[in-house]
């Protein structure tokens, strides 16, 4: 692979990791804020509402970014193929794309820092680093979550069946 196209793929996967990790951490943050708002009163509640509004703004930004991410993926693929085939002006197009991707990453991470605060930002960055190091982590996490959900459902079913059996036994005794 060419140096330029490798750079392009690297930047694109950075954006992907950013979206995945933000989609994981920001909803958790919003849920926590909502729980705290339920308990808080007065000025604290107002301050929490402000923070919540900012977090929801960031979720909208993330949706925009996800929509753009799909289009950019198409562009990146076409640019790499053109570069490989030696189409005229492919190099300039790739450079423009690289510049654009870099600006998007910079802007969205600065927005995350501005709107969500340092804690969530650092968590997102750490998750990004983890995903970029080993992309299989995403799949493994999803599989783990699915197994945990299945186990919870099974335990609920077990509890229900135990209840029913107890009721039946009580009925028999009566």
């Amino acid at each position: 692979m060419n140096k330029l196209s490798a750079q392009l793929v690297n930047l694109y996967s950075t954006i992907t990791a950013f979206i995945i990790s933000a989609k994981k951490h920001v909803p958790k943050f919003i849920e926590g804020l909502k729980e705290m708002m339920g308990r808080a009163k007065g000025r604290v509640k107002e301050a929490l509402a402000l923070v919540l509004g900012e977090a929801e703004t960031f979720m909208q930004i993330l949706d925009d970014l996800e929509a753009k991410w799909i289009l950019l993926g198409k562009r990146v693929g076409v640019a790499i193929e053109k570069l490989r085939m030696g189409v005229k002006l492919a190099k300039e197009n790739v450079l423009v794309l690289i510049d654009k991707l870099r600006r998007i990453i910079e802007n969205s991470s600065m927005l995350a820092l501005e709107l969500l605060g340092r804690g969530v930002y650092l968590r997102i960055k750490e998750e990004m680093r983890r995903i970029l190091k080993n992309p299989n982590v995403v799949r493994e996490d999803a599989e783990l979550e699915a197994t945990v959900r299945e186990a919870e459902q099974l335990s609920e079913l077990l509890q229900r069946s135990e209840k029913l059996q107890n009721e039946k036994a009580n009925m028999m005794v009566e």
């Binding site: 925009d64 929509a67 300039e92």
Partner: peptide
């Protein structure tokens, strides 16, 4: 940068399409 600037930049980045050098392709 201020928050307004960042949001403005974001909407610009999401709105604009990638420039593809269509105007320059004639000058081979």
């Amino acid at each position: 940068m201020e928050r307004e600037d960042l949001l403005k930049m974001h909407s610009e980045l999401m709105g604009e399409d990638v420039w593809e050098f269509h105007s320059l392709e004639k000058g081979g």
